[in-house]
Design a protein around this nucleic acid. Sequence first.
DNA 1: CGCAATTACCCAATCGTTTGGGTGGCGTGG
DNA 2: CCACGCCACCCAAACGATTGGGTAATTGCG
Lengths: 354, 354
Amino acid sequence: MRAEGTGRQPITLKDLAAELGIHPSTVSRVLHSTSEIARGAASSATAERVRKLARERGYSPDPGAASLRTRRTKAFGVIVPRLSDLVLATMYEGVEEAAAEARYSTFVMNSHDNPEEQRRKAETMLARRVDGLILGDIHADSELVHELSARHIPFVLMNRRYPGFPSSTCDDNLGGKLVADHLWDTGHRSVAVIAGEPYASTAVDRTAGFRQRWRELGGEFSDADVVWSRFDTEGGREAAETLLARRGRIPTAVFAVNDFAAIGAMGAIRSHGLTVGQDIAVVGFNDTSLAAQLPIPLSSVRSPMLEIGRRAVELLRRVIAGEQVEPLRLTPELFVRESSAATAAVASRNALAG
Amino acid sequence: MRAEGTGRQPITLKDLAAELGIHPSTVSRVLHSTSEIARGAASSATAERVRKLARERGYSPDPGAASLRTRRTKAFGVIVPRLSDLVLATMYEGVEEAAAEARYSTFVMNSHDNPEEQRRKAETMLARRVDGLILGDIHADSELVHELSARHIPFVLMNRRYPGFPSSTCDDNLGGKLVADHLWDTGHRSVAVIAGEPYASTAVDRTAGFRQRWRELGGEFSDADVVWSRFDTEGGREAAETLLARRGRIPTAVFAVNDFAAIGAMGAIRSHGLTVGQDIAVVGFNDTSLAAQLPIPLSSVRSPMLEIGRRAVELLRRVIAGEQVEPLRLTPELFVRESSAATAAVASRNALAG
DNA sequence: CGCAATTACCCAATCGTTTGGGTGGCGTGG
DNA sequence: CCACGCCACCCAAACGATTGGGTAATTGCG
């Protein structure tokens, strides 16, 4: 494949040109162009010789040199709250795939959902002269989007949306509705939402969708039935503790807007001597690979995480091309499992017994 | 902070020089050098003027241009099996942190533990002219390490080790021993290991450490007590099913070399009507943030994942500097929780009753 | 056979930085 | 008063690829 062998330094265009006795620019045109520009640059015989030698020598162009000239780096910057969040990591896999297919490289950095760090990382990537940014950590009150926009820097949002800017997200509102339908259909009438961080559109939209549909169905749902929390397991546990401490009005079902929060909630429920799926139904969101495999399999709304990442790349490419692009919301799907399969009739009876 | 304001194109050295009426090279020396070389390049008054203007204009050097000249990109390539593996994602966070502190950028790619893809991604990063590679996905029979070595490409291994090459890992062997001690002390005499993928040194070392200590303690342990598996939840479940299907010799304790495999095993155990921690003890590895928060909190060996990532960067920098570096093994620590806290006396009684 | 068009190239400038090697002018010691 | 040595700069050549603009030589057409 690569036959450099002894080569210390990478091969350059000039090396190839010298060996073939032709001018570097000719080599460049042959190698660089999509057979359109190549025609006219060299005879097909020469073109073949060039390509052959390039292959033999394992030539690969120096991207730094090329981007110096072309003013494009063929690289994107990606910023996420943290890659150790399975959801974002999976989206990033989609980003990487799609970017690679389009011959783009990606830098990724963690902002820890901290606006200042977010801005710092963005500047770092811009200092690297990336051609565009994919932001997976935008807050509802973000100033950064406006700044970047004012500076004409191409970017798209991923996972979380911000009105007026291009984004690739799940239809979180719909996701919340799916859960409301499901819990209503299984007979629940007293429910609560573990809502995640209020600065994330994912959390807000999922909660809003749920609330909206629940009320459409005739259910009661007040602000007191929403507990904001962190997105991780511990956050879910704490939120569930809050719910379980409510005198007299312990819900028969809990919707956590994130699988990890749901797992934490399951832990809290068990600590109180109650059984998930029997005494209290739990539904999560994202359907991460864990959900189906848990000791008590978790019902969850599957969001197309990989696809969200892939589409973010596509959108960004279109933004860079100067197109006007609309926000994209991909359709989620609910998977019902043991954690919420029983009907509420059973659930409430057991809750009384417990 | 950045005061470009209207600036369309980034500011260049030449821009600054023109505005100050001095030569670009002088600007470069002032900005670039660590006050050592700066001395002699310009008067301290000029130096101050330069720095001030650079700050005002929000100058940031073009890394492509700089690396074209210096032959260094100040970038590392990182290859991991998949970032959606929490363990590798966390290590990567450490890498990012440490790299940023040393003013390095990082590219990260997923190889899906596929040797061909691994090689492809490595070539992609080398085409990007990274200064070095951090490989988190090396197999026990890797040819890539030898190739890279022969090509004099600076690299270090992370998470998994390979004898004879620099690596930053957990002392997995010791981790296995800790688990053996713990299970032996709590009275278990019939144990099994869910061992992970045989091509990963992590899996092999943890299993070997366990086996070795178990036998030192006088325990019985044969090859039949080891089940190789994938590292994910589903793999753990399948492996546990295998163990639970063994006629007559169901173990009283299971050591899964990975938390996710452990979670899968917990699921399988529950499916068989047994209770984790009562009927069968389970211990995981890595102590991911999930472990302590699970409905039945999981005992786990904590590996310093963040630190492993940070140290990988440090090692790589030393390799690049031409130092001879030794493999590094960081010390793990066992955290005992409900999943394995009960003594085996209770466990085996219950198992009989069940 | 003459002229134009085409083919198959070459030339040189350019992108932004870095860096080895000058070079005037001033201060100082002998 | 002269020589020497700083000081504080400037100059120019890289690094590797791209690209607008040539230009000889060949071919085509009438």
